[in-house]
């Protein structure tokens, strides 16, 4: 798949999402909101992955952002709009602080620490009973944004996805692309070319974490409720990873493709096997990693290059 095909797919996906509210009812719109949210997380997860760092901290950051928003509203009386931005800012700041320590780790160590950090956030919130509501969670008493109307909430979620898409596109077109690709390939040779590895990783970690926290804020503003079990759900870690892997990593279009496919499948699975759908995601990740490590994009690319080789051979004859 070449660059223009990727752009066409991205544009088509955005166009569909833009016109969807015109003819879809409440239920499809709510499904679409979920898909867009997971897709935004998949894109930001992939952005950090472009440096070679595999984070298992998605749920931790979504949960952190969710609680930043709901506590700012319930305890601090912050306006709804602002509370979503606050979630992004807060998550970004936390990522900046912990990034100084954990971005010196690599591979499995980095992954496990991100997983553990998410768990630490969850336990802290779980135990600060008076402030956070503890395990029972906390409700926005004055109701959710837009009175819970699915139209405006749809646009809000689409805006969140838009931020993730814009950031990812910016990464692809800027020095981030060169820095992260060089780091992923070989850190020693990246240093020799003048890449300040820590600085680029920190910037990437802060930006992606801020967006993940903001998505948490949007989630909470859509449902008006947060509990440790709901906002730190393993879904937030596993589903976006599966989407990016299925679609094809190290790109913007991969998570979009995977997001649409897996998002729709997962909604259907949740209805079919409410308590078993995570098992199916898990199996999907295994199958994808074993049999199609470059995802759907990889398969498309391979088909594309086979075609051009065939053409070359025909021309040679």
């Amino acid at each position: 798949m070449n660059r223009s095909t990727s752009r066409i797919i991205t544009m088509a996906a955005i166009a569909i999402m833009m016109v969807l509210p015109a003819f879809a009812g409440d239920y499809p719109l709510q499904v679409a909101r979920n898909v867009m949210m997971y897709m935004a997380l998949a894109i930001t997860w992939d952005m950090l992955l472009r440096s070679g760092q595999i984070s298992f901290g998605l749920a931790g950051l979504v949960g952190l952002g969710s609680y930043a928003t709901i506590l700012a509203v319930v305890r601090g009386g912050m306006p709804d709009w602002l509370s979503i931005l606050f979630a992004g800012l807060f998550s970004g700041l936390v990522a900046f602080g912990i990034g100084f320590f954990i971005l010196r780790l690599r591979h499995t160590y980095f992954s496990i620490v991100t997983l553990a950090l998410g768990e630490i956030f969850r336990i802290i919130i779980h135990n600060l009973h008076d402030f956070t509501g503890g395990p029972e969670g906390i409700v926005i008493q004055q109701g959710v944004m837009f009175g819970g109307k699915s139209g405006p909430l749809y646009w809000l979620t689409l805006a969140g996805l838009g931020v993730a898409l814009a950031a990812s596109y910016w990464f692809e077109k800027s020095k981030f692309h060169f820095a992260l690709t060089a780091i992923r390939n070989n850190e020693v040779s990246a240093k020799t070319s003048g890449v300040n590895i820590f600085r680029w990783l920190l910037a990437t970690f802060v930006i992606t974490s801020a967006i993940q926290g903001m998505i948490g804020g949007i989630f909470v503003q859509s449902y008006g409720f947060a509990s440790p079990d709901s906002v730190f759900s393993a879904d937030f870690t596993l589903l976006p990873m599966a989407m990016a892997l299925l679609g094809g990593i190290h790109s913007t279009v991969g998570p979009i493709l995977g997001g649409i496919l897996l998002g729709l499948v997962s909604e259907w699975l949740k209805l079919q096997i409410p308590y078993g759908h995570l098992v199916v995601y898990g199996l999907m990740i295994i199958v994808v990693i074993l049999f199609m490590p470059s995802g759907l994009l990889g398969i498309a690319r391979k088909a594309g290059s086979r075609k051009s080789t065939d053409e070359n051979q025909r021309r040679a004859v």
Partner: peptide
Amino acid sequence: IHPLENLSLLENVMVGSIFAR
């Protein structure tokens, strides 16, 4: 030698200009 995968020949040669310069 580890050429940077996913970058073209030209892009490989850009890296030093971008970051060292």
